[in-house]
Design a protein around this nucleic acid. Sequence first.
DNA 1: CTAAACTTTCAAAAAGTCTTGAAAGTTTAA
DNA 2: TTAAACTTTCAAGACTTTTTGAAAGTTTAG
Lengths: 168, 168
Amino acid sequence: MKLAEAKSEFIQAWGTLGSKWGINRTMAQLHALLFVSPEPMSTEDMMEALNISRGNVNMNIRELMDWGLVEKKHKPGDRKEYFWAEKDIWKVTKQVAKERKKRELEPIMKVLEQVSEVEGDKKDKNIKAFVESINAIRRMASNADKTLDTMVKAEENWFFGGILKLFK
Amino acid sequence: MKLAEAKSEFIQAWGTLGSKWGINRTMAQLHALLFVSPEPMSTEDMMEALNISRGNVNMNIRELMDWGLVEKKHKPGDRKEYFWAEKDIWKVTKQVAKERKKRELEPIMKVLEQVSEVEGDKKDKNIKAFVESINAIRRMASNADKTLDTMVKAEENWFFGGILKLFK
DNA sequence: CTAAACTTTCAAAAAGTCTTGAAAGTTTAA
DNA sequence: TTAAACTTTCAAGACTTTTTGAAAGTTTAG
């Protein structure tokens, strides 16, 4: 397999993976494209590489910047904007964890808190069972929350090697 | 908030969360519905509770069974099939982790292995950079893989309490 | 200024995903 | 058997998400 082909395979696979995790395929592909590009790329470079429109590149690259995965770069003496992706996969993972925690874990925890305050006789079998189910999810979510916090603060070494020994 | 309303809020929120993680909203709602139902439910019960068609219930409940999150139950002297969801949230989490590992981690690892075998001069700067990026992802994925394995084998206690102390 | 170079927006179209419901299939009681 | 009760399938339609591309907006060099 040639380099160009290998890159393209990787970009496709990353796009497919992303779409299974609720991330727009093009956004994941753009991320993969920049991730394996040694140089920052311009909008036109990306349009050409993925065969997509200017508007599509613009919207998805902006979302990648919102996620903190891509940055604008300027080349001296060039009016075009270039885009660069973080290359340290551990930083990327932490950033994604941080964002998903903020965007998805925190909102659901609010709902869980509210519904756990259901009114009525706390001894009613049905209410008791419901509240207990919800509280089990809340404990789980709260642990996930703390674990993600720890992960975000942790050094690469925590994950790459360190953690596994603890389970042996 | 009354019990019925609280259940409905929870079901909605679970559906929304699911859809952000690439899980069909109805499937997530059905799961939530059964998760908070003390009794197994029939197809008709579910159709009525979520206001959806028979075909929709059938397809999504089958997928939930594929994921190992829902089981058929039979009531003695009743021809209808009833469906029951695992109530232990730790078991649910482990099961989802196990399935996603099989469905998503393993396929991407195959692709990564292939593309890392790109042909050409191993000293070429471009090839070297690409292979190194891919290998960083492979190391990450392989660690995630092992961590999930460990998690699937672990007792509830590992996650609920045990792990956090290790980071203090 | 002005015009060229570049970026952003967003309504409409395309593509993708989910749902319906009626027909086909299966099981069971009698 | 038969027919009623129940489940499954899947083509067509509904809905959702993504993409396009042209127009509007912005920036900069001269």
